[in-house]
């Protein structure tokens, strides 16, 4: 009889390019349980509780008086990620406070989708941690993200998440392939 303990397993950090991430609209919970993780459904068809992005931090802004938080812009070969680090992410906030822009950074964080009263969507990352990295790490991330995005495109229609994503977004895989191709061409040999 197998009575292995079911231990808590950390959610993997998905790799996603900015121009795909900013199209994300759907967020859901795996179950009604209060502690069940929150997922964003990426257009290419995978759930993401956490993502890893590596790019150039070009701008950071300190905001708020009592509740200080930082906003930042991170550029990858396809577009811009918006990140937030507030008092609920003290580690990330302290790290971003120290970084001088521009810099190559790696950000690990949770997807956050906000709809304004006017109906516009603001898609950002609540950063858990930010660290400075080098150019090579950025290039490796682009390859990594390209590979995982292509893998997801190849799997469309074969997983529940990807079928759901097709219903919600109906993306055209060839447009995303083009995005991946363009991202790769920006990596210098």
């Amino acid at each position: 009889m197998n009575r292995r303990q079911i231990s808590y397993e950390r959610e993997p950090a998905r790799r996603v390019f900015a121009s795909e991430f900013r199209e994300t609209r759907v967020q859901f919970k795996a179950s009604d349980d209060e502690k069940s993780p929150n997922y964003a459904l990426l257009p290419s068809g995978v759930r993401a509780n956490r993502i890893l992005v590596v790019g150039t931090l070009t701008e950071k802004q300190r905001q708020g008086d009592q509740n200080i938080f930082y906003r930042g812009r991170i550029i990858d070969p396809t577009g811009t990620f918006f990140i937030m680090a507030g008092s609920y992410q003290p580690e990330a906030m302290q790290q971003i406070a120290k970084i001088e822009v521009p810099a190559f950074v790696a950000v690990i964080g949770k997807p956050n989708i906000y709809q304004t009263p006017e109906g516009a969507y603001l898609v950002s990352i609540n950063a858990e941690s930010i660290s400075t990295v080098d150019r090579e790490t950025r290039d490796i991330w682009v390859l990594d993200t390209a590979r995982e995005t292509l893998d997801r495109l190849d799997a469309i229609g074969t997983t529940d998440d990807s079928r759901k994503a097709q219903e919600e977004y109906g993306i055209k895989p060839e447009i995303y392939r083009k995005m991946v191709y363009d991202a790769l061409t920006q990596v210098q040999l």
Binding site: I140, L143, A146, L150, E174, R177, V180, Y181, L184, L189
Partner: peptide, 20 residues
């Protein structure tokens, strides 16, 4: 440490561009 592999870049370019 993982190092940048230009052969992988070439393979991925083929994969992304070739099928499109």
């Amino acid at each position: 440490p993982v190092t940048f592999d230009s052969a992988e870049l070439a393979a991925l370019l083929n994969r992304a561009g070739g099928e499109a």
